[in-house]
Amino acid sequence: MEINLILNGKKIKAQIRPDELLLDFVRAQGCWSVKRGCETANCGLCTVWLDGKPVLSCSTLAARADGRTVTTLEGVAAEAEAFGSYLAEEGAEQCGFCSPGLIMNVLAMERELSNPSEEEIKEYLAGNLCRCTGYMGQLRAIRNYLNRKGGETNGENR
């Protein structure tokens, strides 16, 4: 079947199988950042945005994306790099396999929550599993990143 969607800002038309998962579709479109870590919607590695909201591309049919907007890490490259550099500063990317999914959800959180507490951050990101870091370094990176943003917007007060 045919679908029309906006993928990372570009209008595309594609032929898909009716049962094709969005995860496989975006990878076939060259969005290699999107990873599969499980088959049971538990790990968050495959997080993309559908109309701006973070969803699991492993559990979303590509057909559902018809007429909608899909964003992967490749589509928010500059922001991803900005936050990613904070992760890297902490060494908190480690193996890096879960990083793109985490980054997509952190950027979604940033849009949805203003000034989140530590508990709110943990709850928002609970669906992003990581086996390397123990999460602490990620939390340090997120805090530094959010604080930096605050610092920028409040720059005049300093």
């Binding site: 968050g44 973070p54 669906g127």
Partner: peptide, 12 residues
């Protein structure tokens, strides 16, 4: 619902 897997899951 807040304990159900994660935000992405609950968005789906």
């Amino acid at each position: 619902v807040r304990h159900i897997v994660g935000v992405q899951f609950r968005n789906g």
